[in-house]
Structures are given as structure tokens and as C-alpha cells.
Simulated assay, not measured.
Amino acid sequence: MQTGWMRTELVSEPGDPGRPNEDFASIGLPASGQGGSLVVLDGVTPPQGDYGCLHSVSWFSARLGGALTELSVSLRDLTLTEILSRAIRRVAETHAGTCDLSHPRTPQATVVLARWSATEVEYLVLSDSALLVESTTGEVTALLDDRLARLPRASLATDAVADATVRNKEGGFFTAAADPSVASRAVTGTLPRDSVRALAALTDGATRWTEKFRAGGWSELLALVRKEGAQALVDRVRALEAADAEERVHLRRSKTHDDATVVYVEL
């Protein structure tokens, strides 16, 4: 049984208030009191034009995230890989009859999924969102799927090149779209529950503080969230984006503001 208290915090802010937030975040705490789970998705914005689907990316993120939230707390006998596979299949079946799910830009998302019990913490990371784990001794480890970051920049020069050569392809990178087998490509693992003090799951709109602007390392990012809250991290990212909007020293070709989501859990 879960004992003592637990601090949880969730912030998700769109990059553009005039557009739907394509991120999804949830924390599941079963009524049984046995453990819990967190889900963070970053919906992948498609380029302009037809992407084979009648539905929006936010529609997809909401359904995949909802399925992951339910399955991660109700089917504790399944691994996180099996849960992601089942959730992808469930969502695909809801629109396979109306949409071209083979299109390379069919709605898709990055995934961070973590689940804890009295004895262990399981994790799954797919694509470029991040899961930070703080140990009981204060060490912070970033659990990342870094395949996208390791690709030659030429393979990402245009959307067409990326879609044809590396998106959801062997030797490239993978996202959760319509193929359940992609779940086996995720970075997964299990940690002893008594070695983990806190978890922080972030979309790349929030990890910009470390990865793009180099304002601090992963340990400093987690310390900021613990001390000042998840909203403080997002606010600092927004300030850095605004300051770099003209020169684009750090932003370069990236959108000025991205959807930013932070989920923080102290176990």
C-alpha cells in the first residue's frame, strides 16, 4: 500500500493562445491507493497541407493520453510497452475507417509514461520528451530517447526528407502514431521504488530551458520545479524565448513558442 503523502503538480501551456494545445498530461492515482502513474504526450504538429486524417493532433493526443491513463492504472499486470501498444491500437481503430493511417504525418505524439508501486518505478520514453528521475541521494538522471538528436541534420533538412527517410523508420526515430509495434522501440526500464525521490516529465517545449537555452542542467531544472513550481519553469522558458525572438541565437529555425508541459511527482 502507498503510505505517507505525495506531492503532484501539472502545468501545460500552449505556445500560441490562439491555437489548441497539442500536449497531453495526466496523473493517475488509483482509488485502491496502490501506486500511480503519469502520462505526458507532445503532439507532433504536421506541415501545412493534407496529412490523411480528418482529426486534429490535439484530438489524437487526448485519445491516446486518455487510453494510456486508463490502462496504466487498470491493467497493472501489463508492461508499459504492452500498454502503449494496446493504446495505439485502440485509437487507430477509432478512425481507421475514415482516415489514411499509413500517411507519414498521420496524427502522432512523443510519449513519456511512468508507473510506480510500493516496490518499483517503471518508465517508458519514446522520442524527444524527457523523464527526469531524482534519487534519494539527490542525483538527477535524464531518461531520454535521443535518436532524433543523433540524426544527421541533413536528414531533417525538410519535412519531406524527414518523412521519407527517418520518421518512424529503421535507423531514424519513432513516435506513437497508428502502428502498435512502435511501442517496442521505446526506451524502457524499472527502478527500485525506494531509490526514487521524485519524477519530472517534460515535453520539449519545457526542456528548452536546458536543451536549447542552456540556462541550467537537468539537476538545476528539477531543483527549480521543486522550489518554485512547474509554472515558474514555463515562465522562464517564455522569457528566454521572447528575448531571443529577434536574434534567434538559440531558437534558430524553431518556432518562437512551443506548447510546454511539466508533470512533477514527489513519491
Rank of each mutant, 00 (worst) to 15 (best):
V111C: 12
T119Q: 14
A201T: 10
T94P: 01
A92E: 14
L233V: 09
G18H: 11
L222Y: 10
P107F: 01
Q48P: 13
L10N: 01
S129H: 07
V225W: 00
S219A: 15
E120D: 15
G138L: 13
R19Q: 15
T207D: 08
I27M: 07
P46I: 00
E93Q: 15
P104G: 06
A176V: 05
V187I: 10
A31C: 09
S195Y: 05
G97S: 14
A25I: 01
L251K: 09
V140H: 10
S26Q: 07
R214D: 07
L131C: 13
L113K: 07
W218V: 06
T98C: 12
P14K: 11
Q2S: 14
L144H: 07
R238G: 09
A230V: 04
A239Q: 14
L29S: 13
P104F: 02
L233E: 06
D244W: 09
V44G: 03
L75T: 13
L75R: 15
R252A: 15
S56F: 02
E211N: 15
L68W: 02
L148N: 01
R185V: 02
A92P: 11
A245Q: 14
P47L: 01
Y51V: 04
G171N: 05
S58K: 12
T81F: 02
L151Y: 00
F213W: 08
T98M: 09
F24Y: 14
A177S: 14
V112G: 05
D23I: 01
S85D: 12
A178I: 08
G216P: 08
V11K: 06
R185N: 08
R90C: 05
R63T: 02
E220P: 06
V196A: 08
L148G: 02
R214G: 10
S181R: 15
T136P: 11
L41Y: 02
C53L: 04
T261E: 02
R90F: 09
T110Y: 00
D42F: 04
V44M: 09
T45C: 08
D145L: 03
L240R: 10
A243F: 09
S85E: 14
R236I: 04
A183K: 09
D42G: 09
V121W: 03
T81G: 14
L64M: 04
E13C: 10
H103W: 09
T261Y: 05
T158W: 01
S135A: 15
L156W: 00
F60H: 12
P180Y: 07
L10I: 08
V262M: 04
A183D: 06
W116E: 05
A198V: 06
S129Y: 06
E241I: 02
F174D: 01
L54F: 11
V112F: 07
T137P: 09
A162Y: 02
I88N: 04
L132V: 13
R214F: 08
Q231N: 12
A232I: 07
L54E: 15
T94L: 12
S184P: 03
V265C: 03
A149S: 13
R105P: 00
R105C: 06
G49K: 00
A206Y: 10
A87W: 07
P47H: 03
L29A: 13
W218R: 10
G229H: 05
D235V: 02
D179V: 12
T136D: 08
A260T: 07
I88V: 15
R214A: 14
T203I: 06
V125C: 04
A260K: 03
S129P: 09
T81R: 15
A25E: 01
D194F: 11
A62M: 02
L78M: 14
